[in-house]
Write a protein that binds this DNA or RNA. Structure first.
Lengths: 716, 716
DNA sequence: CGGATTGGCACCTATGTGCGAACC
DNA sequence: CTGGTTCGCACATAGGTGCCAATC
C-alpha cells in the first residue's frame, strides 16, 4: 500500500535529474534486483517464486523504480508491506503509543556521508583500500551523519561491505581493467557499530563512524574483520535498524544506504600512485610520507641517504614544525580533501612521473568494463593536483544529457498517488536537505569556500560514473538508477524501505543465528577520553552528481568474538540462514572533484548556488516525515531459506545468479563465478563451493575457539 | 529461606580460618552493615525500621555472619528473600523456564580478583592511586574473573568506588595517619562495563577488566570519570546484575563483591616512595622510570646530567634492549607481582633512603586508626624489596590458629540443613577453586614457581589486614568478618545476595533515572584487534587470608555522555533515587606478599601446596551451584527512599551515620563529615550539601550539554 | 612556609601508514 | 620475469606514567 504512493515521486524526481527511466515496477523482478550486486546473497531471498521468476527487463533501471518494483513484487506475492514510512504523522505521536521500542515508532532517517569531498577525490581516481593480514582500516573513514530518527527509539547501526560486481581487476597501464571473473566471495560480515543499540537521539548527536571496521584478506581472520578478495571491487553499505537488542536484529527492518562514491578496489599494495599520494596527503598516520613542501618523493629518496636521513630522524621537531605548516594535521578523522592549495598542489603531481602520465591519459575512455567508467570520466587530464583547479567536470549540458538517457522503468505500476511522493515533494526535500548541509558546513567551521555548495554540478564529473561501478552484470542496470537522484542528492541517499517482517520470533530461534555478526566490542580503547572528531570534511555538501545503487542484502552476518562478547549473541556456528533478505537501495550524491577554495571554485559554486544551499549539521528543521527517498518494502523470507537446498531453489526461481548448493548459509550467500543472471544451473562452482565451505568452517571454528582467547574486552 | 541454609557453612569455614567471632546473625542490624562503609549511602536503604534499629552487637563480625544477619533481618522484616542461590537445581533447568531473560534464571556467580598478588603487594604498603584532572586509570587494573553465571542470561557488570571510611589522611613520617574528618563526598558514579549487557557465557569467557574507569579529582568532570577526594581512602566494588538492558538496572538484583585488598588512598602525587616504585616496576607505561638494573633513581638522576641524559635519549634502542631484560614487559594487563627477584629486588630499596627507613619502620604498629593495620601487619621489616624474600607469612600452625578462632555467627537462625553449606562443602569448593587456579596459571603460561600455590599462607601477612581497612567506624567490625573466609578464599569473595525487588516497572519510570550512570561507550578504540590480555597474574591463586567487607550500595549512578551514548539511557538529571540499596558483602583472599620465583618461595609453596592446587582457567568443572560463599538476601527499598526526607528517615531508623537532608539523591548519598553512627541529626553539613548540590547540578548540566559534543563514539 | 595540586615533560605502550625488500 | 603478497621498518597519532618545577 505504501510503496505505490511513493513510486511516482521517485520516478519523477529521478527523471528530472536523470535520463534513465524506471521500468514498470511489476515487471522488475526482485531476483534481479537483489541478486545483482551480490549474486551470492540471493539464495537467501525468501521471495515467492512468482515474484522472482520474471527476468530483468532492462539493466538501466532507476534505483527508485527498482525499489518500487521490489515492493510491488512483495505486495503481489501477498506479503505485507511495512507500516512505517508513508504516514507523515509526527514523531510526537510516538509518545502516545510508545510501547516497547520497535512498535510503530515514526521515523524518517536521513543519512549523509561525511567527508564526501574526500571520498569523491578518491572515487575519481578509483579508490583503493589496502587489505592486510592483520587488518587495515578504510582510509577515507566511513562516517555518516544521521537524522530523522526517533529520539527515544533504539537503533542498531551497522555496515557491511559487499562485492560491487563479480569481476577481478588488475591495474594495467595506470588504469583498472577487468581481469576475469571474480574469485569466490568470502563470507560476508556485518559490522555492528559498537555503540549499538543506542537511541536515535544519541546516534544523531554526532557523526557515526566505523573506524574499527577493518579489512583483511586473511580468510582465517579471527577478529571479525571484513574479509575481502584482493583486486576486487567492493561497495560499503550502511544499515539502520530500529531495534533495542541485537538479538532482535533478525526480526527488524533494515534500512540500507549505499554511497556509490565509497566503492573501492581491495588491494594488498597500492596500484595507483595518485591514490597513494591522496592517502598520504590526507591520512594523519601517513604524515611521515608527506613532503615538507618540496618535491615529495624525490626529496624523500634524497633524504634516504645515510647522512641526511639520519639527520632528519634526529630532527623530528623540525620536521613536525614544518609539517604543521600546511593544513593537514588532524587526527584520524578526515580533513579537508585538498590538503591546501599551497602544499597540497604538489602531491599528485610530483609523486611519480611515469604513473602520472599514464594514469592521467585514461580520460573518459571507458574501460573494458563499465565499472571503471566514472573513474576515467572526469578526465583529470594533466592536472595531477586534485585540488589545484577543478578538473574537467561535466557542464550543465552534460548533466542534462545524463538525465535524459534512461528509458526503462517508466512509472512503477502499483505506485499510486503522489502526495509526499510527488516530484514536488522530492524537490522540496532535496532543497531542504541541501540547505541543511550548507548550514551544517558553516556550523562545522568549514567556513572555507562558502560558495562551494553550487559545485554540486561536479556531479557530472561522475557522469560516466553513475553507470558502471556497482553491479556490472545483471545489476549494471541499477547503476544507472543510481544517478536517478543525481546532482542534488548531495550525500542524501535514496533507500528502499522494507516493511516489518511478518515472521514470528519463534521462527528465528528455531533457525538459529546462522548468519554471523561482526562487531567490535565496546571494550578497549577510544571510549573514554573525549577527542572531538576533527572531521574536517563533514559538511562538504558540494556533492555533484548523485547516483543510486541498489544492492541485495541477505544476511551474511559474521559473528565475531567481539560481537559475541559485547552483544550477547550466541554463535550457533552454521545453523540457519538469516531470514532477512531485505534489500534497500540508496542513492547518494556521487563524485565531486576536489573543490579548493579557489576563486574559480567559488565562481562555480555561485553558479549552481541555489540548488545546494541548506543546513547540514542543522538542528531541528521541519521536513517531510516520509520523503520520496524512502520506500517501505516487505520481503519476507520463506522457510526454504533455512536450508541450502531451499535457498538454491529460491535463487533458481528468482533467476538469481547464485548457485551455491551448499547447506551452509554462508555458502549460499557467497558469490561464485559470474552471475549469469536468470540462470539456475549450479554451474561448475560446486567444487569451489565445497572447498570454500571447508575454509569457512575452519574460520568459524576458529572464531568460536577464539571467543575465550580474544583480546577484545576492555583490553588496554 | 535460602539464606539460612548457607549460614552454617560460611560460619564454619570462617571459623576454621579466622579467630574472629561473628555475632548472632539475627542480632546484627542491617543498618550498621549497610551504612558502615558508606554512611552517605545509607539513606537510600529501604530496610524496615525494625530491622535496622538494632545496634551492632560486636564489631568483630564475620562477613558471612553479617551476610546471614542481613538476610535474617530482611526475612524478619517480612521482606522476601531471593529465590536464587540455595536451590542447587542445575542450570539446565533454565531451559525449561527460559522466559525472557531475568526470570528465574539459576546462577551462582563466583568472582575472583585478578592479579591478586600484585594487589596484595600494594595493599601491604598502602595502595595509592593518583587522581588527576584529566583522569587517571587505576594501576593495578581492577580485573575480575567471573564464573557461575547462567550462560545464556544477560548480565550487566559494573563497578563503583566508595569511601572506605570518613577520614581524611596525611602521609606523615612515612606512614598514613588520619588527619581529620573526611571532606564532603563527591557524587558517586557507577561505571558500567562497556560490554554490558552480555551473556554470562561471554562474561565468563575471559577476565572482565575495567581499564576505562578513570579517577579524577575534578569535581566538574564531564567524562563520567569517578570523582574522588584526594587523601581519602576508597574501596572499589564490583557488581553483577542479571539484566538484559541497562534500563532494567533499577529493577534488578545487585550482587556486590568487595575485595578488601583493592582499597586505596587517592592522591594527587604519590606519597609513599615504595608505592611509586611498585608502580614503576609493574606498570608498563612507567617503564621509562625503571632502572636498567642498577640503582634506579640514583642512576636516573645522574643521567639527568645534560651530556648523559642527552645521550640516553638518543640511544633509546639501547635502553629498550636493556629494558626488556627484566621480567616486566607486559602490556596494560597485570604481570607477575614480583617483577622478578633479580632486578626487582632493588626497586623499593634504592629509591629513597629517607623514606625507606621511615616507611619500613612502621611495622606491625597499628596506626592511630585501625584502618592502616593491615598495612603495617606483615612486618616487611627492613627488607624494602617486596619480592626479595617472602615477608613474614603465617606458617601452617598460624593458619590453623586462624581457622579455629571464630565463634560468633555460629549458624544463622533460619539456616536449615547443611548440604552445600556445610563446612565440608565449603572446603571442597575452596579446594576446587584452588585447583582451578593452579591449572589456570599453568595454562596461562605462568609456569614460574609451580610450587608457589601453597603460599596461600601469605594470607596471614594480611592478618592485621582483615580488620581495619574498610569501615573504620561502625563497620570496623565487619572488617574482621572479611577474614572470615580467610586463607583459602583466595579471591573468592563472599557476598550477600539480595532477592529480586518487588517494585513494579512503572515505579521506576515514574521516578526517572535519578541516579547517574557512568560508563565508557563501546565506541572508539581497543575493541577491534585481538591482543590477548597478558594478565600475568591471573592465576595467582596464592590468595592468603580472605577478608570480607560489606558496604551499602544505594545507587549513586552518575550518567556520563558515554553511558548515554552507548547505553541509550535517558538522562533526567536529578529525578529520583535509585531504589536499590542492595548490599552485598564479599570476602576475598587478602594480602599476599610478593612471591618471587625464589627457591624460598618455592619451598614455602611446597609446604602449603595441597591447599591451593587446582585449575583456574580451567574449563568446565562440576561444582556446587550454591556454594556457601553466597547468601541470597532481599532488601527491598521502601518508597521512602525516593525522597530525601524519607531517605534520611531510613538512615535515622537504621542508625546510620549519613545525615544528608538534601532532596537530591546524589546529596543523600554523599558522605558529609564523620559518620557518628546512630546519630540522626542532620548536623551542620546542610550548608555544605547545598553548595555541593549546586556544583553537582552544574556538573550534570555540563554532562548533558556535552552529550552532543563528546568525542566518545568511535573516535579514532 | 609547607603541604597539596597542577601542568609540562620525557618516556613508554599501542596502533595506524606507506615503503621497499623479500618472497612466491 | 612479472604480478601479487608479505613482512619488518620508520614514522605518525593517541594516550598512559611518574617526574619535577611551579603554583596554590
Amino acid at each position: 500500500p505504501d510503496v505505490p504512493m511513493r513510486e511516482p515521486a521517485l520516478a519523477a524526481s529521478a527523471m528530472a535529474y536523470h535520463p534513465f527511466h524506471a521500468p514498470r515496477p511489476a515487471d522488475f523482478p526482485m531476483s534481479a534486483f537483489l541478486a545483482a550486486a551480490q549474486p551470492s546473497f540471493f539464495p537467501a531471498l525468501a521471495l515467492p517464486p512468482g515474484a522472482l521468476a520474471k527476468p530483468l527487463p532492462d539493466p538501466s533501471l532507476a534505483g527508485a523504480a527498482v525499489a518500487a518494483a521490489a515492493a510491488a513484487a512483495a505486495a503481489e506475492a501477498g506479503l505485507h508491506v511495512s507500516a512505517l514510512g508513508p504516514h507523515p504523522p509526527a514523531a510526537h505521536l510516538r509518545s502516545l503509543k510508545s510501547l516497547e521500542p520497535e512498535d510503530e515508532v515514526e521515523d524518517d532517517p536521513k543519512v549523509t556521508l561525511e567527508a564526501k569531498e574526500l571520498w569523491d577525490q578518491f572515487h575519481k581516481l578509483g579508490t583503493e583500500m589496502v587489505i592486510t593480514k592483520s587488518g587495515r582500516r578504510m582510509f577515507p573513514p566511513f562516517k555518516v551523519r544521521v537524522s530523522g530518527l526517533d529520539k527515544k527509539a533504539k537503533y542498531i547501526l551497522l555496515m557491511d561491505i559487499v562485492a560491487a560486481d563479480d569481476c577481478r581487476y588488475k591495474f594495467h597501464n595506470s588504469r583498472w581493467m577487468v581481469a576475469g571473473k571474480a574469485d569466490p566471495e568470502m563470507p560476508k560480515r556485518m559490522y555492528i557499530h559498537p555503540d549499538s543499540p543506542a537511541t536515535g537521539e544519541q546516534w544523531m548527536a554526532k557523526p557515526v563512524a566505523f573506524h574499527k571496521l577493518k579489512l583483511t584478506n586473511n580468510i582465517s581472520d579471527k577478529h571479525g574483520f571484513t574479509i575481502l578478495n584482493s583486486m576486487h571491487k567492493y561497495q560499503p553499505r550502511f544499515h539502520i535498524v530500529r531495534a533495542n537488542d541485537i538479538l532482535k536484529l533478525p526480526y527488524s527492518t533494515f534500512r540500507t544506504y549505499v554511497f556509490p562514491e565509497t566503492d573501492f578496489i581491495a588491494v594488498t599494495a597500492y596500484q595507483n600512485d595518485k591514490i597513494t599520494q591522496l592517502k598520504i596527503d590526507n591520512n594523519p598516520f601517513a604524515k611521515g610520507f608527506r613532503d615538507t613542501g618540496n618535491g615529495r618523493r624525490e626529496k624523500r629518496k634524497q633524504l634516504t641517504l645515510p647522512s641526511l636521513r639520519l639527520y632528519e630522524e634526529h630532527c623530528k621537531p623540525e620536521r613536525d614544525g614544518a609539517d604543521s605548516d600546511a593544513s593537514s594535521c588532524d587526527p584520524p578523522p578526515t580533513r579537508e580533501p585538498p590538503p591546501s592549495p599551497g602544499t597540497a598542489s604538489s602531491p599528485l603531481r610530483l609523486h611519480r612521473a611515469r604513473a602520472e602520465e599514464k594514469s592521467c591519459a585514461a580520460d573518459s575512455d571507458p574501460e573494458p568494463e563499465r565499472l571503471t567508467e566514472e573513474r576515467s570520466g572526469p578526465a583529470l587530464g594533466r592536472s595531477p593536483a586534485p585540488d589545484s583547479v577543478s578538473p574537467p567536470r561535466l557542464t550543465e549540458p552534460e548533466r542534462a544529457r545524463e538525465r535524459r538517457s534512461p528509458e526503462r522503468g517508466k512509472e512503477p505500476a502499483e505506485s499510486g498517488g503522489d502526495g509526499p511522493f510527488s516530484l514536488r515533494s522530492l524537490e522540496k526535500e532535496r532543497v531542504a536537505e541541501a540547505r541543511r548541509k550548507d548550514e551544517g558546513r558553516k556550523e562545522a567551521g568549514e567556513g572555507k569556500e562558502p560558495g562551494l555548495a553550487p559545485l554540486v554540478v561536479q556531479t557530472d564529473s561522475a557522469s560516466p560514473l553513475g553507470a558502471g561501478h556497482l553491479p556490472s552484470l545483471a545489476f549494471s542496470s541499477h547503476l544507472h538508477g543510481q544517478q536517478f537522484f543525481g546532482p542534488l542528492g548531495a550525500g542524501q541517499p535514496l533507500f528502499l524501505h522494507p516493511g516489518q517482517f511478518a515472521m514470528g520470533p519463534g521462527a528465528f530461534s528455531a533457525m538459529g543465528m546462522g548468519h554471523l555478526l561482526a562487531s567490535v566490542a565496546g571494550s578497549g580503547n577510544g571510549g573514554g577520553g573525549g577527542p572531538v572528531t576533527t572531521a574536517g570534511l563533514d559538511a562538504g555538501g558540494l556533492g555533484p552528481a548523485a547516483s543510486a545503487a541498489s544492492t541485495a542484502a541477505p544476511f551474511p552476518f559474521h559473528l565475531s568474538q567481539h560481537m559475541l562478547a559485547s552483544q550477547g549473541i550466541p554463535m550457533p556456528t552454521f545453523g540457519g540462514l538469516f531470514p532477512y533478505p531485505y534489500t534497500y537501495m540508496a542513492a547518494a550524491a556521487a563524485a565531486a572533484s576536489a573543490l579548493p577554495a579557489t576563486s574559480a571554485a567559488a565562481a562555480a559554486a555561485a553558479a549552481a548556488g541555489s540548488l545546494s544551499r541548506s543546513p547540514f549539521l542543522g538542528s531541528a528543521r521541519p521536513r517531510l516525515r516520509f520523503s520520496p527517498y524512502q520506500i517501505p518494502v516487505t520481503i519476507p523470507p520463506t522457510t526454504s531459506l533455512l536450508t541450502t537446498g531451499l535457498a538454491s531453489e529460491g535463487s533458481k526461481a528468482a533467476g538469481s545468479n547464485s548457485r551455491e548448493p551448499s547447506p551452509l548459509p554462508e555458502l549460499a550467500l557467497r558469490k561464485v563465478g559470474a552471475p549469469t543472471r536468470g540462470t539456475l544451473s549450479p554451474s561448475g562452482s560446486v567444487k569451489e563451493a565445497a572447498s570454500e565451505l571447508q575454509s569457512i568452517q575452519r574460520l568459524v571454528s576458529g572464531l568460536e575457539s577464539q571467543r575465550a582467547l580474544s583480546p577484545g574486552r576492555e583490553s588496554p
